[in-house]
Amino acid sequence: MIERATPIEQAAPPTFETLLRTVEEMDTPDGFKAELIRGKIVVSPWSRLRYLRPMRALRRQLEAHSPDGHIVETTPILFQFPAARRAYGPDLYVADEAAFDEEGRHADGAALSLVAEFTSVSTKDVDWHEKMDVYGQLVPVYLVVDMQASEITCFSDPSPHGYRSRTTVSFGQALPVAKPFDFALDTTGF
Rank of each mutant, 00 (worst) to 15 (best):
E63P: 00
F181I: 11
A84I: 02
S66E: 00
D68H: 05
G109C: 04
D157N: 14
T28F: 05
A178G: 11
P140H: 10
D125I: 13
P90H: 07
E24M: 06
D91G: 13
T168R: 15
A111C: 08
V23R: 01
Q10C: 13
H70Y: 09
H65Q: 03
V141L: 13
V177N: 10
I41W: 04
T119E: 00
L138H: 11
R85K: 10
P13C: 02
P82K: 13
P140L: 09
V139R: 04
S165M: 06
F155M: 11
R21I: 01
P54H: 12
L49K: 15
L62Y: 07
T167A: 13
Q10D: 02
F181H: 13
S113L: 00
P140Q: 09
G104C: 01
V72C: 04
D108N: 14
S156W: 08
T167E: 11
L49T: 13
I41L: 10
H65G: 00
L138R: 15
S47D: 00
S47A: 14
F16Q: 01
A95F: 02
P76T: 10
M132Q: 15
E117Y: 01
T119F: 05
S122P: 06
A99K: 03
E35N: 04
G109L: 09
R86G: 02
P90K: 10
K179W: 06
F155G: 08
T75L: 11
Y93K: 00
L143H: 12
A110G: 06
L58Y: 05
V43T: 09
V145C: 09
P180L: 12
P29L: 10
F155I: 10
W46N: 15
F190C: 15
V43C: 03
R38D: 10
F100D: 02
D91Q: 07
V43P: 02
K40N: 12
V145D: 00
G162D: 02
E97Y: 07
T6R: 15
D108E: 08
D186C: 09
M26I: 05
R21T: 04
L185T: 06
S156H: 10
I8C: 10
L92N: 03
S120P: 12
Y135I: 01
P54M: 07
A87T: 06
E103H: 12
A107N: 02
S150D: 08
Q61N: 07
L112E: 01
T15F: 07
L52M: 14
I152Y: 03
Q173M: 04
L19P: 02
V42F: 01
R85M: 01
I152T: 07
Q137Y: 07
L49H: 14
L62P: 02
T15C: 06
E24D: 10
A83F: 00
D96E: 06
G89N: 08
V94N: 05
T153S: 15
G136L: 12
P54W: 09
G69W: 08
I77P: 01
L52E: 10
R105F: 09
